[in-house]
């Protein structure tokens, strides 16, 4: 017990989970924006757009996140020396954090795009035809008729994607972002006798983050579902 308190005073578990939360929030916003663009391109009548979106989705979806994170940290940041944040005040560690967010956003954009596409497919064809009959163009009918219904139908899969994203943030521990998984590695190195408590702390942390998310999205998807 004494060693456990010692460990908790040596390592700031809350700060590490705060980094996890930041990665989740920024990554999710990026993934949602990027994924929506890709989904819209995917269903657009312009062949170039829909093929480019299909290629993006399929390439990203079948590439491991580890590899994408590695590409952004080493390919883009270290080798090509592209910095996303103004330096100073940003440090090299901040640049790694930014690349971690980009990697998470890019990877999950493919999942968001697929979730949205499934949402779009739940909207009956008649809705699009009615919109067209009213004289709405592609953009207008998408914005006013299709997407609002598609998002409501896609809430459940988007929720699962967000939970997966939260857990996947652990991958960026490999590119110098000190979030929960990186902290766990440090704690195991110096307190290997406390490996079970460390495991319990980490599992509890992630359950606290993801379980309410899951419950909220289940509730929301039922509430928002378009009854047909």
């Amino acid at each position: 017990m004494e060693r456990l308190m010692q460990m908790l005073s040596d390592y700031n578990v809350l700060a590490a989970f705060w980094t996890t939360i930041q990665l989740t929030v920024y990554g999710a916003i990026g993934a949602l924006v990027l994924g929506t663009i890709v989904a819209v391109m995917r269903v657009s009548p312009v062949a170039v757009f829909s093929r480019a979106a299909a290629l993006w989705t399929n390439v990203i979806l079948y590439t491991p996140l580890t590899l994408i994170a590695f590409f952004f940290a080493f390919g883009v940041l270290i080798k090509m020396n592209i910095r996303l944040l103004p330096e100073p005040p940003a440090t090299l560690l901040d640049q790694h954090f930014a690349m971690g967010v980009v990697a998470i956003a890019v990877y999950h954009s493919s999942l968001v795009a697929e979730a949205l596409r499934s949402g779009i497919n739940t909207v009956p064809l008649g809705q699009a035809e009615a919109a067209r009959a009213l004289g709405l163009g592609f953009g207008q009918s998408l914005r006013e008729v299709i997407l609002p219904q598609a998002f409501r139908g896609a809430i459940a899969p988007l929720g699962s994607t967000l939970i997966a994203l939260c857990k996947n943030t652990t991958v960026v521990a490999t590119i110098s972002v000190t979030e929960a998984a990186a902290l766990m590695k440090s704690m195991i190195e110096f307190y290997s006798d406390l490996i079970v408590p460390i495991f319990v702390i980490m599992v509890t942390g992630f359950v606290i983050l993801t379980l309410p998310l899951g419950m909220f999205f289940t509730w929301w998807s039922k509430r928002a579902a378009v009854l047909r």
Partner: peptide, 19 residues
């Protein structure tokens, strides 16, 4: 400023590129 990767070979590569 401590950069932490998951293997030393990545550190060696970053050292070589001047990062």
């Amino acid at each position: 400023e401590l950069i932490e990767y998951d293997t030393y070979s990545l550190c060696v590569s970053a050292l070589d590129s001047g990062a």
